[in-house]
Design a protein around this nucleic acid. Structure first.
Lengths: 136, 136
DNA sequence: ATAAAAACATATCAATATACTAGGATTTCA
DNA sequence: TGAAATCCTAGTATATTGATATGTTTTTAT
């Protein structure tokens, strides 16, 4: 039931961008430095978030990334799905039936787990997680 | 967030034993055949359940395994923990702090996920999952 | 124009974990 | 005493993960 670094880094990356929301696009290099994650690896992850439409990018010098909508409109579930973190503990819970799913006594619990996880990640947004910026 | 085969096989194995609860010990070979899982691999898994005290074994000819307590007293959480399936998506959610856990904005969501999963697996027992045996 | 800075794209690779196999040693019953 | 079963530990192939490497394209500033 562990989550991969893609999911963890993806969320941290998005939280970083959420902290900069409203300002200029942020270069990946900056995020990588702040979060202490390999820039090249983050590049792959941020592209998935980009293709999923969660962020928008500006190419060229002084380019960078920014959230494509407000932090309160981006759920953790949106992010995890974008970087292909499966939310179900087994594929069958996503109705990708296996040979024995007809008689599988274990299936209901996997579905319950999946629903419980979805309940959490779909109801928490970046805004919920953002540390209160102590601007005075 | 995928569960390993150890977790899946472990639960199926226990459900199989739950179906035989009250009768004679069941040989692993039979379970392996019924569930279509490698006997040698199941052997390792069943030993973990044995050491955790969820099942008891009878050695020698005509030996086998049986649940050590009633199906309604064995939760799915008991089983998953016995075979070392982590219920938290990240170690930090289990209070194994990492360097950045002090300022980690992502930590709360991992804890929420962990608690949601625990809520499910600790409140479902083998008896809940056992198909109604149509003994008439 | 040109150089620098940044995003975009894809291939490759090393480390790790998973899933499974192998080969016995021990115990018990018939 | 031998067959059937549990017990124990080491080894191994495969898949996944996490990361590098190399380069292309786009844009801005000089």
């Amino acid at each position: 039931m562990k989550i991969t670094t893609k999911g963890r880094y993806g969320l941290r990356l998005m939280l970083d961008l959420a902290g900069c929301y409203g300002g200029q696009p942020v270069a990946l290099k900056e995020i990588a430095r702040r979060q202490d994650i390999s820039e090249k690896y983050l590049e792959q992850i941020i592209q998935q978030l980009n293709r999923a439409g969660l962020i928008s990018s500006v190419r060229g010098a002084h380019g960078g990334y920014s959230l494509s909508r407000s932090p309160q409109d981006i759920s953790v579930g949106d992010i995890l799905r974008s970087v292909e973190v499966p939310l179900a503990p087994v594929e069958c819970a996503d109705d990708i039936a296996c040979e024995r799913s007809g008689s599988c006594a274990a299936l209901p619990i996997w579905k319950e787990i999946k629903e419980a996880v979805e309940q959490v990640v779909d109801h928490r947004t970046l805004a919920d997680l953002l540390p209160a910026s102590d601007t005075e």
